[in-house]
Design a protein around this nucleic acid. Sequence first.
RNA 1: GCGCCUGUGGCUCAAAUGGAUAGAGCGCUAGCUUCCGGAGCUAGAGGUUAUAGGUUCAAAUCCUAUCAGGCGCUCCA
Length: 568
Amino acid sequence: MKEKIKKLIIESLKKIDDVHDLDEDKIEVTNSKNKDLGDFSTNIALKLSKELGKNPIDIAKDILNNIKKDTYIKKIEIAKPGFINFFTTEDIKFEIINTIFSQKDKFGKNNIGNKEKVLIEFVSANPTGPLHVGHGRGAAYGDCISNLLNTSGYSVSKEYYVNDAGRQISILAVSVILRYYELIDENLKFKFSGLYEGDYIWDISAYILNKYNNKFFKPESIEDSEEVDEYINIIMNSLGDGFEVIKKESADYILKDIRKTLEEFNVSFDSWFSENKIISNQNLKKIIDILSNKECVEEKDGAIWFKSSDFSDEKDRVLVKANKDHTYFLSDIAYHNNKIERGYKKIINIWGADHHGYVDRMNASFNILSNNRAELKILLVQFANLYRGKQKIPMSTREGNFITLKELFNEVGVDAARFFYLMRKTEQHLDFDIELAKSKSSENPVYYVQYAHARICSIFKQLEEKSISYTHNVDNLKLLDKEEEVDILNKLSNYPEIIETATRKFEPHLLINYIRELSQLFHAYYNKFKILNEEEDIRGARLSLLLSIKQILNNASKIIGIKMPNEM
RNA sequence: GCGCCUGUGGCUCAAAUGGAUAGAGCGCUAGCUUCCGGAGCUAGAGGUUAUAGGUUCAAAUCCUAUCAGGCGCUCCA
């Protein structure tokens, strides 16, 4: 309909003598906020006012005089500063119900993606501890963005990058080993500064003990150390290959737990990509070669640097340290090169906002490697500040002092947790009060939406029980002439546009807001009007309206990743 | 110090591309059930959109400065 109105305006403008070089993109047609202002409006007269040196009201009048009559437009009005408001006929409004009935679960889909391959990487938490509440936001967000992209016709793959190499895994292994020693000999007691201290470490140690018995028990060499790296060296030397076994077992153990948590949170991945696979010497050398060929690399102080300051970054970054170890950055470049080589044109990363300093260098290296073959989009999600009442909770994986994601959704429910995470704009800092989320779970807005769905289901259940007839009759839809009914019809027809905007802007909260508003319209309608007691034609029309609402609630809930219960 | 993000009723948040009277929930006040589910509905109070300028026919939205908060500024991962 908007497109139609836009065309009418373009045609009209072409007939006006003063208008030359019309930029059609300039013409905006928006939904009117207020019913008195029609269904759609345009501000084009205001915009052209300066260019043409004329009063906007006069321009609006010119447009109005030249506009073609359209059967779907009841009337057109000009308002104060120069808006042109369009009032559509009721017929076009009823159409939406037929559209929803015929498209069913496809209603709202579009094809802006045109089947383009997209790789979206999210969560990617290090396998050094369980997922905490902060990760939950990224998980819910990434999953919802994936669903939105799918709905908009992209071919989406979801990936989790597993950082199973590097120093943090060594620290994990050391932490496990020391606990393992303590388990075997209760006289042993080690200092744990700088190591992982959560209870889950004990679990892993117990698991190792159960599986390998005393195989790795060599505590003689160890002295308490303040330095984490000393610990690592001592234990690595005393255990030899055994250390690699512990590293792998520990990371696998945690990864298994992470997978399970995500599964329970209804977040699934198409692939789990291991850092260990990408960090072979040939691989990393290849990357350095490519970058040197583009003259983006230099040696300085015994290290190899990426000259990212030539791009948008504030300074150069080390790729290979003077001790020949590669940096995390280099393996990350290699990983992203791999993404490009796998043929993805659109690559999306969802990161915690604490990584924002990393964005510039990543973009710089990516652009060199992709050479315009692919596009990288890094979306930042602000971490939640956790509170318990007024008390801020420090979130340190090391100290093991955190609320896990699993604890959260066991407490408030998966649906509520996902809904809660997605309600907010991602760049918004949010204070997540655990007590509030837990204690007020029954007041969570997700129930409001689910209740709307359950109520509609309940009506249809009654219909069946009382053997009341219902047929969807197109001709009866004109009986939906109450103000509340027209409001709902307008809302329904907005849905596809909301999907499109939410996808384009990567903002799922727009969809959340939408279904809350739709639910609100429904609840108010439900309280004011009776449905089953009405005579047949009106009843039929109203039931069709309810089915349309139900369909949209279902379609949206699948994208958000929550359930729509038939009763609650 | 430099960079990125944020600042909207008592609290937590919305506001599509700069558009018309800044909206919800919680809390507060007053009401609603002879009839489809009261996890609901109706009405009300509560705002100088951090502050000061600027651009514009039009600013919560764009620009500048200031104030306040968060995060990042390792040959860390």
